[in-house]
Design a protein around this nucleic acid. Sequence first.
DNA 1: GTGGTCTAGACCACC
DNA 2: GTGGTCTAGACCACA
Lengths: 126, 126, 126, 126
Amino acid sequence: MEPIFDNERPIYIQLVEMIRIDIVSGKFEKGQRLPSVRELALTMKVNPNTMQKALAELENEKLIYTERTNGKYVTEDEALIEKVKKELAQEKVNQYLRSMKSIGISYQTAVKYLQELGGEDGISKV
Amino acid sequence: MEPIFDNERPIYIQLVEMIRIDIVSGKFEKGQRLPSVRELALTMKVNPNTMQKALAELENEKLIYTERTNGKYVTEDEALIEKVKKELAQEKVNQYLRSMKSIGISYQTAVKYLQELGGEDGISKV
Amino acid sequence: MEPIFDNERPIYIQLVEMIRIDIVSGKFEKGQRLPSVRELALTMKVNPNTMQKALAELENEKLIYTERTNGKYVTEDEALIEKVKKELAQEKVNQYLRSMKSIGISYQTAVKYLQELGGEDGISKV
Amino acid sequence: MEPIFDNERPIYIQLVEMIRIDIVSGKFEKGQRLPSVRELALTMKVNPNTMQKALAELENEKLIYTERTNGKYVTEDEALIEKVKKELAQEKVNQYLRSMKSIGISYQTAVKYLQELGGEDGISKV
DNA sequence: GTGGTCTAGACCACC
DNA sequence: GTGGTCTAGACCACA
């Protein structure tokens, strides 16, 4: 359960990425109230200021917004969430294709392998 | 040009992985004579003993073999290379699916996205 | 010389405004290297972190940029500076018109007064 | 509706300024009978004594006068009102020019901007 | 209670 | 030296 951070990159950036994923994955739903800054900081075992900085960044991206004295909420803008989700997906697709290319596998074959091999090793096809 | 190693895992393991990729990708071709251990060690900026250990591991996997006084060669066994290649590909497929799942994207959608988004950002579709 | 801050608004915002003005007014010229964060903080008698936050905000606006380990510089984008300058000017114009309106003076008269009264009380007409 | 006062300056001075504006703007017309001190004090949420002090100041300026048992009236002296109005206008003009100068904009440009930008952002040009 | 701000002081990588 | 990050701890307004 211990969240572990990559020492190479700022913690607040990694927090941004983690929470961003929680939002696009639906773990934090559209319009949902987030746990308080202090609570999130406690959960992630970081300083509240660090968490604050991460949340400020997400607010910059409009993925969350603040209700004064009330808490922070996930955006209601479903289209935005979808857009960010696509961006993340694009990244993963690129990573996949790059890694396949590095072992000499073309785009066509990468697609074929995904269809052939997908779902093995406990990764559900559904 | 500087190969960079992950500090978390033994270097020789990482060498194994790199050379394995060079073989399945065809950079080192079937039956080809490899550069000498010392040469490879120099290129990768590692100790020759470390490189030796890596090559021993690959020989164990039968991906390379030694001709007593003559050097080391990539296996002639095309089927084996193909098998390893598939194993690596399987790994990549799993990584891809796992990462997509983490952002809330199902197998079906992961396939669709690969077809839709593949090739953007300078990653050739060919 | 003591910079005084309005207690009602965050200091870092006021720093942003002050430095923004220094840039559009040409006190900090296009492309010029800014004093170091620590130096600016000292001059303004604020904590370096507060100054850092202000500068980060200006970097967000692209009015300044950072050269790693070298310092921060005013943008080279003259058009951007001009745009910001116009925005600030628009604000002043609005303030002027609003204040004139509050004492019952129309836009037409506000313009006329500016031409008639401008330059008195030591405010140069040039 | 809540009048808000600047904590830095005496409230009675701020009342003087507000009522003075009401007079020159025509909200309180030439020769008009003012609401009673108590009424004004209630409206502005200040102590009647404070309001009394403000009105005394305005009487000093001759902007209002008292009819012994009858109440207070706005002056009939249109020229005086006009003069005060010009003084206030002069102040606004100076403020405008000073603020423009602070962002590096000359008198000539300040006039041009007023003509170009005036009326935007919901501030009527009429 | 909530988020927001500020300070002091430390450590880091980079060059 | 430079900027960047992180922590600890404090105080504030709001309601």
